[in-house]
Design a protein around this nucleic acid. Structure first.
Lengths: 266, 266
DNA sequence: CGCTGCCTTGATCTTCTTCAAAACGTGTGG
DNA sequence: CCACACGTTTTGAAGAAGATCAAGGCAGCG
């Protein structure tokens, strides 16, 4: 996976602080070059074992499409029939609650898949996928993907491993929602994001995605206000640095202790 | 309070009401007959496509073992290396929280698997499996099971489907823990159990497993006391019937409405 | 019969939500 | 370049939901 250079131009921290020091959203066109497509497909964890010829054979089954920030890729309740792979950008996976609040289940980076793995006629997507940034996604019909799995059993095994890992993550989330304080849940959400989207900067581990207090609240099962209060406290304590739509983790060790419920000592 | 606790002795039901009208715990020996083994293996959802010969070839890879109620099959932190299948009985899957409280992730019925699907050297079980009743389980080493998957790709696809379904369930749980009341969570837990372990009786859909208030609390992310209060209320409202270690769902429609957060009207 | 769990119920307390308002930053149009 | 408008973030005060602490009751069992 090609390491996108983290351009923190104008990173003169103190004085003029760039609000969202991530990939400039306007720079990437909302579509993938053919070249990039093959590169993405080849880089997919579950296609790792396939050779160039095989990838090239699978390639035409995918359709690409660009999305603008905030655009819905599919919505809960839509008839489910496609599997997607993030090529560039970040995709939010969420579920709506009865009370109108949303729950953010995952924030996907390039190379991760989402949508309908298996062709189940009459099924609906249980969740909603929304582009968090400018996104290019590759889509394949569930039927076609199933045929790929039929044809390349090792791919199916790799997908199974990923699925199991995600199940473990979700169950861990259940555990934490069942018995953690607001502070612990926020700390855990930040660490999870940091592990997946973090890039080392002089500010700390910067989370490479526009992340609002609402997003964080939805990840941690809290209200925006509570998330904000917790974030303020964490910042006062020096565990994080944060501003409008961005967060950097300044003290991973203490964040981990906090998330695990151990003594707060610094 | 409006009504007294349900008095089962006065019920119009059978004169002699068994407090836990499930499988009599002492009746089943804690081991499986060889005959039963083959029958179980053949009945497994993910072995559905295999013929007798293939099943017979796989059979020797499994080792059987019996467990008494409350016995731990494996504990979180143990080196992970085996996959289990419930042959008879019910198995609790749970995670421990920092505060000593447990979270009940699932209650498995015969035919369901648990444990380590993939051989990951150095890995530990993230959860604990405990026999809820007298249990007979078939175990297979992760390596052997991986070989089975390698050899029978359709089995892998079926396992993948199950894994995805469980992921969806876990994410649904996350949603509900994030934004539901105690009442809604209990109702949802009961419905989930009813769908999996329910048997129609004149009391309603009886959940075929010994289920304490603590178990329910652990499923719904509540304290035992709150679970008890909610259950009392549900019983007063006629949605359920319950006693020591057992629950029957008397009004599925209203329970569903409650779980979905719709109007309580009955 | 009394012991040991399981279940229930009450009173109090903590945490988080809710409602409300203001400060801040960002981009926009004059 | 400045002023304004909009969305995000922050903060406060009041309220509600559930947790916690504590006690008592009921059932099965030795």
């Amino acid at each position: 996976m090609s390491e996108r250079r983290i351009d923190l131009r104008g990173m003169p921290l103190p004085s003029k602080w760039r609000p969202i020091p991530h990939e400039p959203t306007g720079a990437e066109p909302p579509f993938c070059s053919t070249d990039l497509r093959l590169q993405i497909l080849h880089g997919l964890p579950f296609f790792a074992g396939l050779n160039q010829t095989e990838i090239a054979a699978i390639n035409p089954l995918f359709h690409e499409r660009g999305y603008t920030p905030g655009e819905t890729i599919y919505a809960a309740g839509d008839p489910a029939g496609r599997l997607y792979v993030v090529a560039t950008g970040k995709v939010k996976i969420l579920r709506h609650t009865l009370a109108g609040k949303d729950v953010l289940l995952d924030l996907l980076a390039p190379g991760e898949f989402f949508g309908a793995l298996s062709p189940l006629p009459g099924e609906e997507y249980p969740d909603t996928a929304v582009a968090q940034t400018v996104v290019c996604a590759l889509g394949i019909s569930s039927e076609d993907f199933r045929r790929v799995l039929d044809r390349f059993p090792p791919v199916a095994l790799k997908v199974l491993d990923i699925s199991q890992a995600r199940l473990g993550d979700a169950q861990e989330m259940v555990r934490r929602l069942s018995a953690s304080t607001a502070e612990q849940r926020v700390a855990y959400a930040l660490l999870k994001l940091g592990g997946k989207l973090g890039a080392q900067t002089r500010e700390g581990l910067l989370i490479q995605a526009p992340l609002s207090r609402s997003d964080l609240a939805e990840m941690a099962g809290l209200t925006t206000e509570t998330a904000s209060r917790v974030m303020s406290q964490l910042q006062r304590d020096g565990l994080i640095r944060s501003g409008r739509q961005w967060v950097a983790l300044a003290d991973l060790a203490r964040l981990r202790r906090l998330a695990e419920g151990e003594s707060p000592g610094g």
